[in-house]
Every structure is written in structure tokens, then in C-alpha cells.
């Protein structure tokens, strides 16, 4: 996997394309605000204010959404879509990781904003009753990344399940000799909105073991080996949606023949 060296200190060493990709990225810590829009199920809006510049963002499109009792680490990129159904410019792609920092819960009314009608996200899996298309060969060593919320090892619904489902479909067809699962954690401390954050080193092992157990359940009989690494570096894999911090918080499933 091609690795990127990232962010301001490392920008000079990256390609022009990578530098362009990191431009405009937004990262801050905030107490989330719930806007009670009602356009049907799952239609409420999540807003978060970047206190360093006073900007309010719509962060609703995160695959893991905020808890109004806790601060969130917001990571995203301003959306190309100028529409503001939640009353603020949107970050999309965006991630909102729950931090163990208590917040005063705050809900505001819709104030005329419609919110978004729920649509099934691109990353959703079919029921087990639907046969998966067999991926064409030839098969060779391949790596499948899976991504996590900050400092967590929890498989994200309609994100990780889709990534794993694709990997498992391929693995079942390719029949590799073994799987090497490597967990990564972004353990280098960083200061965001005045808060110093770093993932626990244990998160790397937890991620490896979660994915390894998942593989044992989904492809029983296949040998699974676990490894873990701290001080994770970003990658440019597409399913991290161009968010370097998301790409650091990962596990990799390497199919070995």
C-alpha cells in the first residue's frame, strides 16, 4: 500500500496531488448540536462549531454520528454541494468520533430547515439470502483495509460491514493460505482545538483481534495471524474517503497465498 507522508510538517515530501488532496481539510473538537429536523427516519441534523474560527459545519454525513452528551473529533472536507438543508455548510466526507469529554446536551429546533431524507448509503450490504457475485480471478496477494472511529475497535455499521463483506467475498473465492491481520493506531499526540489527542497503543491490538475474530467467524477454517503497529501513518486507499486521519485508524487484512 502506498503510504503518504502527511500534513503540514510533511507536505513538502509529498506529491503535488497529495498536497492538493489535503488542502481544505478541517479538523476540530466540539460539543455537537442536534437540530431536530423531521424528514422521516434518521433525518435529524448534526452540527458542530469550530471554535477557533467560529464556523458552524453540518457533520451529519459521518458514518458514525455524535452523541449529544460528548464532544466529537470532527474530521472532514467541505462538501462540493452548496446546499444547506441543515442550516450550515456541510462537510462531506466527514467523520465524527466520540471523545470521552462530557458536553452539555443541546438540541435546537428545525427553524425551517428540512434536514435530509434518509437514503441508503452506498456502503450497505445485501441480506445473506442474496448471493454475492464471485469476484473474477486470477487471485494474488491482496490487502483489504477496514477503518475505525478514533480510539475504538468497533465495526462501523454501513461502513466496515461493507468493507469486510467485500473482502470476505473475495477471500472465499480466492482461498488464500492464510490471512494476516494488522491493527494500526495513531498514537502520536496531536493538539486539536486545544485538546491533546492520541489513540491508545492498545487500540492497534484491539483492532487486529476484532478483525481476526470476525474473519474466523466469516471464513472459518482459514488460518488467521494477528500483528499490530503503533504510530500509524496515513494511506491513500479510496475507502478512507481522502481523510488522512481516518486512513490511520485501520486494520489491514492481508490475504497470503
Amino acid at each position: 500500500m502506498k503510504r503518504l507522508t502527511l500534513l503540514a510538517a510533511l507536505c513538502a515530501a509529498t506529491s503535488a496531488q497529495a498536497a492538493q488532496d489535503t488542502a481544505g481539510l478541517v479538523r476540530f473538537v466540539a460539543c455537537p448540536v442536534y437540530r431536530d429536523t423531521d424528514a422521516g427516519r434518521k433525518s435529524g441534523c448534526w452540527l458542530a462549531d469550530d471554535r477557533e474560527n467560529g464556523k458552524r459545519w453540518d457533520v451529519t454525513e459521518s458514518p458514525y454520528k455524535p452523541d449529544w452528551n460528548f464532544a466529537v473529533l470532527v474530521e472532514g472536507r467541505p462538501s462540493a454541494n452548496a446546499a444547506q438543508p441543515c442550516g450550515a455548510p456541510a462537510l462531506d466526507p466527514v467523520r465524527t468520533s466520540r471523545l470521552d469529554i462530557p458536553c452539555t446536551r443541546h438540541m435546537i429546533p428545525a427553524e425551517g430547515f428540512p434536514g435530509r431524507r434518509y437514503t441508503l448509503p452506498r456502503r450497505n450490504i445485501a441480506p445473506l439470502s442474496v448471493a454475492r457475485a464471485v469476484p473474477p480471478g486470477p487471485y494474488a496477494e491482496r490487502v483489504f483495509p477496514v477503518y475505525f472511529e478514533f480510539d475504538k475497535d468497533f465495526l462501523v455499521y454501513q461502513y466496515d460491514d461493507w468493507l469486510i463483506d467485500n473482502a470476505v467475498t473475495w477471500i472465499k473465492a480466492a482461498k488464500p493460505k492464510k490471512l494476516i491481520v494488522t491493527g494500526f493506531a495513531a498514537t502520536a499526540p496531536e493538539t486539536v482545538s486545544g485538546v491533546t489527542i492520541a489513540e491508545r497503543p492498545e487500540a492497534a491490538q484491539e483492532r487486529a483481534e476484532t478483525i481476526a475474530e470476525t474473519m474466523r467467524r466469516l471464513v472459518p477454517g482459514t488460518a488467521v495471524e494477528t500483528k499490530w503497529e503503533v504510530a500509524a501513518q496515513p494511506t491513500d486507499e479510496p475507502e478512507a474517503d481522502g481523510l488522512p486521519w481516518q486512513s490511520q485508524r485501520r486494520a489491514e487484512i492481508r490475504a497470503v497465498f
Binding site: S43, K65, P66, D67, N69, M107, E149, F154, Y157
Partner: peptide
């Protein structure tokens, strides 16, 4: 629809958010 709040198994850890309308 109503706001489901502070309910483990719905509002945590699954990622629907707390609260979530459904």
C-alpha cells in the same frame, strides 16, 4: 417518528447517533 435517546443498542455503540429519529 420520535427521538430515541440514551438507549444502548440504538444510540450506542452502533453509530446512529444520540439522539436518532425513528
Amino acid at each position: 417518528m420520535f427521538l430515541i435517546t440514551d438507549t444502548a443498542g440504538i444510540n450506542s455503540r452502533i453509530g446512529f447517533g444520540n439522539p436518532v429519529r425513528n
